[in-house]
Design a binder for these strands. Structure first.
Lengths: 338, 338
DNA sequence: TGGATATCTGCACGCGTGTGCACAAATGGG
DNA sequence: CCCATTTGTGCACACGCGTGCAGATATCCA
């Protein structure tokens, strides 16, 4: 509790002097698997705690060329599903003694590549991209420097990166069957102008399934992937005669906006007049006002997998791994007409 | 575009050799305000880009004893208001060339102090605590090492830390007047068991204002600060005879759960049978199903202020700064009975 | 052209660590 | 008691960078 100390960090040197040992002994005390006698270890530890010593991870990383930092590149952090991913990832990373550096970016490629450069500055071990698509050139740079790039739900198949994504296909197909079995006749897909690979795939597969069953589908893309866009889509669809009676919203957030507008602006009852299926299973989907039938992204399992990529020994590139979403039946779809 | 290079980072040394200059020249090229001729600067820059060189911020930080890293210690990251704070802070920090390291913690003091230790490891310039209260001893350690600690909405008045918080007093008082003017007779405060300084203050001031007006208030604290706790509170209050007709929920999230249960489980109409006032102004408060009257936390302004603390020259401790919340009138409170 | 001055460059050191190597000390076995 | 073996320690170097200092080169003025 030496109060009047210089206003700066304590180095191993100072601890060594105080403990009456060499600096190496201090270093070894704080290095796993190094050889130190119990006696000196105790001397060092007590001196360290008296002085308030903390190993400088910057210097440590300098030597190992590895900083234990993992960068998370993310946009739309306020969006429920993104927040959940960041939450899960940070927890999992901490559990394996890594620390997350989050970089908040607009989705445009320019700011993403600026972000990627930052991760190189700090010699991050890996970069996890949750949104926005990094240009291929930057990915190559990262790889050339021995850094790993993990792309979540943005399978652009950039070679060298590891892609992990939720399986949109089964979900989109199942969504169609749900609506079909509920007796819906006029189907709609509600999407956004974001045109993400994931979103496009959900649109495409749902439409294809409907086609195969001989049913037409109208696709509406209104603004960004937000609550407001869900509202806007509803206005476009129900403003004219004969709106849909079954809608697959590629995101819960869109679905919720869509439901709110359908109910409050057009007086529709859900699920009697209109069935809605979402995707993500955000917390709000389970709120009493919505009780949305949807497909849950296995956020925790995905985060687990990302973390496992960084376990020692696991340096191979698995290229691609998909996770099955879990269907969650609630009340926004009519029970099967029997 | 030298493809077949060793799988490691490029150092200034390599760039120097390639450019035919000394390593110092490379260093100076990437240091603001250093003196380099235009000719060598160009040679260096082109060599650097060919090799894919990136300044090692770890080494740079090692010299300056300052890493440009700011740690955000946060829990409940999935909560809308927290996500917004993290979003705003990361953006602001990036704008001033700092990078955010987020540490996800349970709110208990033990994990918070573990988090604080992490920030010391990485020589973070400052630590911003968004939730959970760090023990005073750790704060002292941080300060002794020249690190700054900023506490947001957790004014525990730990000496040495900078506290920034929203002004709960005016809001809580105004909340009471709103309900009073709406003609509510039986008032309730809906809170949580978290017992945060902020939350307690909102309860206290609201109750005091009601007392002063000669009205009784019942306080309900059910579980953590969540949607489910709002529901639980409603069940407790409306399960017995004569529930409240005006409620101040210390958080929008609680308010929304409360509203949902009141409407769907007890058939109450809002605002006709029950008026509700929230706090935070999260995005969901503006959703069509709720349209909650509430008080907006000036998240962006607060983040701005935090960032300004780190501007060069600003090293003084201002101790405490509060921000006025903005009232947002929507439809969960009856218009004044005239 | 010569000298004074401004501009640039390289050398060498230090930042706080981890670690190979040589050596000292302790331990064990006969 | 001596030697072989284990265990612990210190020295010195390296990691990649910024920067003071001295020297080299360029620029300017008379």
């Amino acid at each position: 509790m030496n109060e009047a100390r210089s206003r700066s960090f304590v180095s191993a040197q100072m601890v060594a002097e105080r403990a009456g040992v060499s600096r190496s002994a201090v270093s070894r005390t704080f290095t796993d698997g190094a050889s130190v006698s119990e006696a000196t270890r105790r001397k060092v530890l007590s001196a360290a705690s008296e002085l308030g010593y903390h190993v400088n991870h910057l210097a440590r990383g300098l030597i190992h060329d590895r900083s234990n930092i993992v960068c998370l590149v993310v946009s739309d952090l306020t969006t429920a599903i993104r927040a959940r991913m960041v939450d899960a990832l940070t927890r999992r990373l901490q559990a394996i003694d890594k620390v997350a550096m989050v970089i908040n970016t607009e989705s445009d490629t320019e700011s993403v590549s600026a972000a990627l450069r930052q991760t190189l500055h700090y010699r991050a071990e890996a970069t996890v991209v949750l949104s926005g698509t990094p240009p291929a050139s930057i990915i190559e740079t990262c790889m050339a420097n021995g850094q790993r790039v993990v792309l979540i739900n943005r399978d652009d198949h950039l070679s060298g990166s590891e892609n992990i994504a939720v399986d949109n296909q089964v979900a989109a197909r199942e969504a169609f069957f749900l609506l079909q079995r509920a007796g819906c006749r006029r189907l709609a897909v509600i999407s956004s102008e974001a045109r993400t690979a994931s979103l496009l795939e959900r649109e495409r597969v749902f439409t294809a399934a409907a086609d195969a069953a001989g049913m037409a589908v109208s696709v509406t893309r209104a603004g960004p992937t937000s609550y407001a866009s869900g509202i806007e889509a509803a206005r476009r669809l129900f403003g004219r005669s004969s709106g849909p009676d079954g809608a697959f919203c590629v995101t819960d957030l869109l679905a919720i906006g869509f439901m709110d507008a359908a109910r409050h602006e057009f007086g529709l009852r859900i699920p009697e007049d209109l069935c809605v299926v979402g995707f993500d299973d955000i917390e709000q989907a389970n709120w009493e006002s919505y009780r949305l039938t949807t497909f849950a992204q296995p956020v925790e399992r995905m985060a687990d997998h990302v973390a496992s990529l960084f376990e020692p020994g696991n340096s191979g590139v698995s290229e691609r791994r998909t996770f099955e979403p879990t269907p969650v039946w609630r009340r926004s779809v009519r029970p099967t007409a029997s």
